[in-house]
Amino acid sequence: MVSFYNCKSTKVIAASGEASSKLTAKQLIKAHTKNEVDFKTLQAKTKIDITQGEKTKGITFNLRIKKDEVIWLSAPLGLARMMITPNKVQFYNKTDNTYFDGDYKLLSDFVGFELDFEKVQNILMGQAIYNLKEKPHTIDVQENSYVLEPKNQDVLLELFYLMNASHFKLDSLQLAQSVKRRFLQVDYKSYQGVEKNIIPKEIKIIAVEDTEEALVDMEIKSVTLNGDVRFPFRIPSGYTEIELK
C-alpha cells in the first residue's frame, strides 16, 4: 500500500507495503518501469548541500527539466547556472568568474563513475540507471526492500538496486569498483506524490574514491509538471574556463 498525506497538489508518500519473497525479478522490473515519472516538463525548488572534507556549501536552485532534452539549474539572481543536455554539460559561476563547457567528464569525475544525460535524469527521478530489460537479474529481500542485481555481476563494476516495497521506486542505488576503490551510493530518503506521479523529495548521494568522500544532500520541493519553461543560458564574456585534469 502507498498512502499519501498533506494537502495541496504535492503530497509526501508514506510507504507501508511489505516485501514479498514470491515476487519475481521480472515482476519487480515491470512494476518499477510502470512507475517511471510521466511528464514533459518539470519545475521545482531544489536545496543542495555539498560536503567535501570539512567544508559544506548549500544553496537553493531553481530546477527545470524538459524530459530527455534539458536539465537546468539556476542559483538566485543567476549567480551560478548549469545546463545539461544529452551532448554536453555547461556551467558558469559569477562569484569567481569561471565556466565549464564540455562533456560529462565534469560530473563523472565528481561521482567517480561514468554518467550521461539519461543516468542523471534517472537518478533525479528515482529510476534505475541502466535498462533493466537488457540483462537477467536476481531478486532478494533485505530489510523490507527488494534487492535487484544483475545475474552476472561485472567483475569491474558491481551494481545493486534497492527498491521500495510499496511503490517500487528506488530506495537506494549502489555502484562499486573495488579495484579503483570507488563507491557511489544514492539513497532516497523520501518521495512525494505530484499529479499521480511518485517523485523523489530527499536524496542523499555518497561518492567515495580511495580516501576522499563527497556528500550531496538534495531536497526537491514545490514541484509542478508540464508548465511552460524556458532555459536561458549564456556564458558571460571574460570568464576563465575550468580545465579538467
Rank of each mutant, 00 (worst) to 15 (best):
I65Y: 06
E149A: 12
T224Q: 09
R181W: 09
F183R: 10
Y161M: 01
A165C: 09
L63C: 00
E134G: 02
F231L: 14
N97E: 13
G193F: 05
V141C: 00
G193H: 13
I203C: 01
Q43H: 10
F4W: 04
Y146K: 06
V223W: 03
A31H: 10
A128W: 12
G112C: 06
E114D: 13
K57P: 02
Y5H: 05
K45R: 13
A14L: 03
K67Q: 13
D217A: 11
E195W: 05
S108G: 05
E195D: 15
S166W: 09
S237W: 15
E209M: 03
E114I: 07
R234P: 03
K45Y: 10
L79M: 13
M218S: 12
D187E: 14
E219R: 13
I206V: 08
T24R: 00
I65V: 10
T10A: 06
G53Q: 12
K47Q: 05
M83F: 05
V147I: 14
Y5P: 02
T24N: 08
E149T: 13
L225T: 06
R230P: 02
M82Q: 05
K221V: 15
T51M: 09
I199V: 08
G102H: 11
Q43F: 07
K119T: 11
S20F: 02
C7G: 15
N93Q: 07
V70I: 15
K119H: 08
K22Q: 12
T95N: 07
G102D: 06
K196S: 09
E114C: 04
V141S: 01
R64I: 04
W72S: 02
F183V: 07
I48M: 11
L156E: 13
L215A: 09
F61T: 00
E213F: 10
H137Y: 15
A214L: 11
K8N: 14
T85Y: 05
D96H: 06
I13N: 06
D140N: 12
N164W: 09
F91V: 09
I50A: 03
S74R: 06
L132D: 11
K201S: 08
N144L: 03
M163N: 04
Y239T: 06
E209S: 01
T240C: 01
A44C: 07
P236D: 14
L173I: 05
D171M: 02
L170D: 00
K221F: 09
V89G: 05
V208L: 08
K30G: 01
H137M: 04
F61K: 00
E219T: 10
K88E: 15
S108L: 04
